[in-house]
Every structure is written in C-alpha cells, then in structure tokens.
Design a protein around this nucleic acid. Structure first.
Length: 498
RNA sequence: GGUGGGUUGGCGGAGAGGUUACGCACCGGAUUGCAAAUCCGUGAAGACCGGUUCGAUUCCGGUACCCACCUCCA
C-alpha cells in the first residue's frame, strides 16, 4: 500500500516514501492565537488530521510524529492586548485553549507536539546567528534581515522569481533592506512590547523564523511533510525553506509540501481581513440553540472532507446541515444492524484492501472515500427480494455494518457521538426546551384524531396546516400519531388553532 | 502585470479514453381520507472552439469566465 501525495514543490502526485518509516515526521503551521478560530482555520486541521490518521495506519501509531505550532508572539496579538488592556499571556493562553476545544469538537486528534513560539526564542536566535555567520543574513538598524539573493532557489516553491516579485510588489520597501524582497528575521521591540535580549538588542522574531526553528528542534534537519493553507505558500513557506536550507545546508528541510485550498463563503475566501468569517464556536452554539444538537462538529468535519483538500469548499450553512443529515443516516442504518464493537485488529483488516482506503491513499481523496461509505450504507437499507434465508441476510448486513463502522471511525468520527445528529435524538432536546407548549400540542393532536374519526377532515387538515406553519410535524402511523418540532419552532402560530 | 488552480446534471461532488459514480433535491409509483415519514423507481451533466483517436466529459492546444497568491491570513 503506497500513499500518493501531491507535492507542491514538484507539482506532481508522488509516491510517499518516508525518510525513516520508524519515525514519519510532519509539521503543520498552526494558528496565531489572538481570536477564535474561524471555519477556514479548521480546514487544514481536519485535512492534516486525516493524513495523520492515514500515516498512523500505514506506518503504525507509534511511528508518526505530528507537530503543529501555536504562534503566540505576533503584532496582531500585541494589538489585541493594547485595545483590550489585557495582558498578552492571558490572551494567548485563553485563545490557545479555545482552539484546542473547538478542534476537539471537530474530532481532530491532538498532534504529538504543539510547541509555542515563545518557548523557542533561543533556538530562533541561534538560527539567526547561524544565518549571519554563513552570509545569508545581515543586521541593519536593529533588524536582522534574510538576504534573498544569497539563496539561489528562492521562489522555487511558489514558482516565482525575485525579479517578478519586485515588479509586482505592492508594499513600501524599508530603507534598510538591501533587496526589496529581503524579509525580517528579527526586529527591535520597544519597552511596551514583548521582547527578548539578543545580540542585536531587545527584540522579537519575525513571523517565519519560528516555524523553521521549531521544526528543526523537534523534527530535525530533514523531515517528511510540511503542510498548511495555500495562502502560506508565499511568503511564509518560501521563507521557511530559505532560512532552513541556508542555516542547515546539509538537510533537505521538508521533502513533501502540501497545501490545502481555501474555504469560501459565497465564492470568496473566508478570511479575517475580508471580515466574511464565522467562527467554529458560532456554529457549535447556533446548532445547539436552533436544533438542539449538542455538537455539530462532526457535520462540519464531514463538510470539510466532502471536497478534495486541493479544491475550494463553500461553507454555507445549508451544506453543514446536509452533512449532518448524511451522518445521521449513516448512524441510523448502521445502528439498526448493530455490529459488535470492533477490535483493533478487526478494524485494521476492514480498512486494509478496501476501496475506501484506496481512495484515501490517492492523495487523500476524502470525497471518494465518503462515497464508498454511502454505497455501503445504501446496501444496509436495501432488503433484497430473494432473501429467502433471513439468517444469511442478517449476517450479510452485520458484515456490511462492521465495515461501515470501521470506515466511519477511520475518518475520525465517534460512531456513538453521531446519534445526537439524528432527529430522534435532537427532537427530545428541542421538545424539552419547549415543555410549556406540550399540553397545547397534545390537545390539538387529540382534537385532530377525533376530527378524523368523525370524518371532519376540514378541521383535521386545518390543525395539521397550522402545525406546519408553527413548525410542528405530525406523523400518522398504525400505532397512532407522533409529532416533532422543527428547528425554528414558533409557538405563537399555534394560538390561531385554539 | 507575474504565478498557480479551477469550470461536470437543479445543488454538492468523484473516478475512468468506450461500461450506473455517489448523495441531496425534483419527478413517478407504493402507502395515506389527504398529507408527513418510509420504501421502490425513472430522468438529468461535463464552459466554448479546434486537434489526436474507431471513439473524449476524460489526452493536447486555444478562447471565455471564476478563484487564490504576489500585503497580515489556514
């Protein structure tokens, strides 16, 4: 079984061969902790979580090291502290915990290491000194800058040349730069901003150096995979490569570069600078409030996986709802055939050699993997006409249900946790929140039943139509009538039926 | 202006040079007093123009349009 991954560096899909199968190493750029994570921030977390699970499956759980950083020194954080009057440490600690909570709600495993930038300042300083010593960086006016002309391959990842970039540059060039594209490794800090002593005076690191320093410290000079959003390709990743390759020329830095496409809202990238974002927490709260769903996280997770990671994905809420419906269906039909809990060995076997796994092996084709689950689930729904032997029929179903269970679990969904997405479950929560209207609804249901017995269908239908307007759905069956509340239930509309 | 990616049925979204993707919605049927729910089933596509080929939605070229990056951003 070979994993194929699209490598931005070579612009090709390649067979993935780790440097050391005993220790497969992956670094993913994490968040700057100054605000709640928006849905766009969640995309790489989910994408690389799936990759992490795939790598663990292929190489063994103990043979994969996944590092994702927290950027806790940044001018946006400083600005947030200044405007709120709160200490920086308080803001970053709070936001870090928010991030972990929200990503856990999405079912993402925690990486093996989650280094904070401020804990690696000495390593950054050492790396900058190395770069100066090797002639790749220079100090000027309290800053230290990387000299892009000293690294011939600068621009290779993003497919640009220094000349092109200068021509298209839209930023003012600082006077102390030798080349307009030179970027900051270290900058001076006034007394009111976070700063650390360094050979160049009290200062703080530039944006890119932290990832280079932390990746080197935790994963070494050469490691397997480096991931992040494609908006980081330039300048962030380009600069990381330049710094790391120049400071440690004997290493390759990252061999495979992976970039996820952006999450969109109405055809535009969701981003904080455009202001068209909503946070993961917003969604979690909204679904709890309107639907009575405790954790819509799995539906968000599925939505993010329903598009290939190198394609854009739209975040409109109706899509999240559709994803929740799909998960509820998966749960319902699998639960109906109630497979025994699977042992680890069984899970492994059910995943190996499956079309489901083949889809994921092919550059993480999650939409194709999902359709494999769909196909299995629809087998669970079908009762073949010629099932003369009910026992063998049930055995078949249980076998299929086991497979579905294994596959769903592999994608990072907690099977039992999907129950709360099923209407039968969230109905109860909605109802319990509207207990005061129970009696009224029950009486109307009873009245309708009597009207039907008397063949007074006009009255019966009037009640039903009124229910529909208010957001109450009624279902008649041989065992009687049941009713359900729809999201957005409006009890005031029931008044007209009295 | 430079660089990269994309355009598939009403919507979401894949694979494969020739055989049903799949899901949702729609429509038809069963069921129901009528509905809802459920079950069964049929339709429906490949931006445009050329080329290669026995045959292309799939490969190649061009055109149009969309998105992203080149400024903090996942």
């Amino acid at each position: 079984m070979t994993i194929k991954l699209y490598n931005t560096r070579t612009r090709r899909k390649e067979a993935f061969v780790p440097l050391d199968p005993e220790n497969v190493r992956m670094y993913v750029c994490g968040p700057t902790v100054y605000d709640r994570a928006h849905l766009g921030n969640a995309r790489p977390v989910v994408v690389f979580d799936v990759l992490y699970r795939l790598l663990r499956h292929e190489f063994g759980a103990d043979h994969v090291t996944y590092v994702r950083n927290f950027t806790d020194v940044d001018d946006k954080i400083n600005a947030r502290a200044a405007e709120s009057g709160r200490p920086i440490g308080e803001i970053t600690a709070e936001t870090t915990q928010w991030f972990l909570d929200d990503m856990a709600a999405l079912g993402a495993l925690e990486p093996d290491a989650m280094p904070r930038a401020t804990a690696y300042i000495p390593q950054m300083v050492a790396m900058i000194e190395e770069l100066i010593a090797r002639g790749h960086a220079y100090a000027a006016e309290g800053h230290v800058l990387f000299a892009v002309e000293s690294y011939a391959e600068y621009g290779a990842l993003s497919g640009r040349t220094v000349e092109d970039m200068i021509a298209g540059a839209r930023v003012e060039v600082a006077p102390y730069k030798r080349n307009p594209m030179d970027f900051v490794l270290w900058k001076p800090s006034p007394a009111d901003l976070p700063g650390w002593d360094s050979p160049w005076g009290r200062g703080r690191p530039g944006w890119h150096i932290e990832c280079s320093a932390m990746a080197h410290e935790l994963l070494g000079e050469s490691f397997d995979i480096h991931g992040g959003g494609n908006d980081l390709m330039f300048p962030h990743h380009e600069n990381e490569i330049a710094q790391s390759r120049c400071a440690h020329p004997e290493g390759d830095f990252a061999r495979v570069w992976m970039h996820n496409e952006m999450l969109q809202v109405e055809g535009k990238k969701m981003s904080k600078s455009l202001g068209n974002f909503f946070t993961v927490r917003d969604l979690l709260d909204e679904y709890d409030e309107r639907f009575g769903i405790e954790n819509i996280g799995p539906a968000i997770r599925l939505r993010l996986m329903q598009s290939h990671y190198r394609s854009p994905v739209d975040a409109a809420l109706s899509y999240v709802e559709a994803s929740a419906t799909k998960l509820a269906e998966w749960w319902f039909w699998t639960e109906l055939h109630r497979p025994e809990p699977l042992s680890e060995d069984e899970k492994f076997e059910l995943i190996n050699e499956s079309p489901f796994l083949s889809a994921l092996l092919d550059d993480l084709n999650t939409p194709a993997a999902i359709s494999e689950i769909d196909a299995k689930v629809s087998q669970l729904r079908v009762i073949p006409e010629n099932h003369t032997n009910i026992e063998s029929y049930s055995n078949d179903k249980e076998k299929i249900a086991k497979q579905v269970l294994a596959w769903i679990g592999f994608l990072g969904f907690d099977f039992d946790g999907l129950k709360q997405l099923h209407p039968s479950h969230w109905q109860n929560r909605l109802k319990s929140r509207n207990l005061e209207f129970n009696e009224l609804i029950e009486n109307l249901v009873k009245e309708r039943a009597e009207a039907r017995l008397e063949k007074n269908f006009a009255r019966a239908d009037k009640i039903r139509d009124g229910f529909i307007a208010a957001g109450v759905t009624i279902k008649d069956s041989s065992e009687g009538t049941t009713w359900e509340l729809k999201p957005g239930f409006d009890p005031s509309k029931l008044e007209a039926l009295k």
